[in-house]
Design a protein around this nucleic acid. Structure first.
Lengths: 217, 217
DNA sequence: CTTTTAAATAAACACCATTTAATAATAGTT
DNA sequence: AACTATTATTAAATGGTGTTTATTTAAAAG
């Protein structure tokens, strides 16, 4: 009934974010609810709506924090490598490991559908962009190519690693258990980089192989 | 109140599946609810639970149908190509197009978390396995490799295409709009296949490049 | 024609996100 | 010190959700 000053607004905000993250880690983000978060921090739902506009905003805040954590481990990974190809490998390793260690929070980044448009979506793009840039830097060290091609390459390759991470942590048994995410990403990256390094005229081929071309019967 | 024989059990089942699919296409699978489906087919919720054990089962049925549709368009795509590399391209094109045309149903396949374990999950794996096999067939035609390597290659490459498809239909603006999914997948596949075709000793390199190796400072 | 059985419903339960109005405690002002 | 305004907090209400229950209705079986 209206006690005040126990915790500041930003303290409650922080407590709520941490409590929510704990719930998500344990029960999956499907199991997240305003009531659970509120009772976990010793408040009622109303107080949550005093701090966050709605659950959507809380989730976006958590996703932002998770993306920051992911970026941090990615940056840290680069201290363990020298050669560019080795660094790309290292980035993929920690990417997949992060997804495996925090599957629910990681999935929430990409699966949660924001119904609250045009708020902080731009921040998201920047945080993801940073991740691509780490890859771009390695690719630049690996082969001299125009910037647009580096951008294309980093996104193509990293979306690929992303897909492997998804399949690795999928609850459905899409993959017979034999193949690990690391095996898959190592293979994908090695083959890809082999092509990337050796094929100077690859862009030409790419265009030439457009699907409108008639092949002989 | 209890009129009988208007529709058979399997008719209701079919009507429910189609109604649910329509709702998902329009509102996203977050907007799916038992009550909406029931009222769409002119019944009450109870009747749905007379036909399906729960919403989970209905969703899994829909996912199965969607996977069948996806397989069908993939198989059909192979009639438009001759060369293996061109066929892989074609498969990727229709995969990404399918995801773009049915984003909600497609996402539901991979994002819905089944809480109802051990039911028909095996069926899922088979339906996904079929998709990989289409790719495997093309890779076999492209380079003579042991079966395990073909399996690894198909899964690595296709998880990659899958990741691109995900990012392409993501609601968040992860990617600056310039790059299309087709550009990305074309690039990924071309680079990958260049590596795949040319590097006979690639497996050796892969192992040799394990992250335990010390590189010179 | 009565009994059994199956189909369908209405209503209930326990949740959920979000909004509303009410209340309690503080801060500012006289 | 008393009064007001403001802010923090809650309880309760609204309308939604999945799922279960008991109940009714219609058809089939005897």
């Amino acid at each position: 009934m209206g006690r005040r000053g126990e915790h500041s607004k930003s303290e409650i905000e922080c407590m709520a974010l941490e409590a929510a993250e704990a719930i998500i880690e344990e029960e999956g983000y499907e199991g997240l609810s305003a009531r659970k978060v509120a009772s976990a921090i010793g408040y009622t739902v109303g107080s949550l709506y005093f701090v966050f506009r709605n659950l959507d905003e809380l989730i976006q805040r958590i996703n932002g924090r998770t993306l920051d954590q992911l970026y941090a481990v990615q940056v840290d990974a680069l201290t363990h490598c020298r050669l560019p190809q080795q660094c790309v490998m290292e980035l993929a390793t920690v990417y997949i490991d992060f997804a495996a260690q925090h599957p629910h929070r990681w999935r929430m980044i990409f699966e949660h559908q924001p119904r609250d448009d045009g708020l902080s979506l731009e921040i998201y793009r920047e945080k993801v962009e940073r991740l691509y840039e780490l890859v771009e830097k390695q690719l630049k060290a690996l082969a001299a190519r125009p910037d647009e091609e580096i951008a294309l390459a980093a996104r193509a390759l990293w979306n690929g690693v992303h897909g492997i991470a998804i399949m690795t942590i999928a609850r459905y048994p899409y993959m017979e258990g034999k193949l690990s995410g690391h095996q898959l990403s190592t293979h994908l990256i090695n083959q890809y980089l082999t092509g990337f390094r050796t094929t100077e005229i690859n862009n030409v081929i790419t265009r030439t192989m457009g699907r409108t071309i008639d092949y002989p019967k």
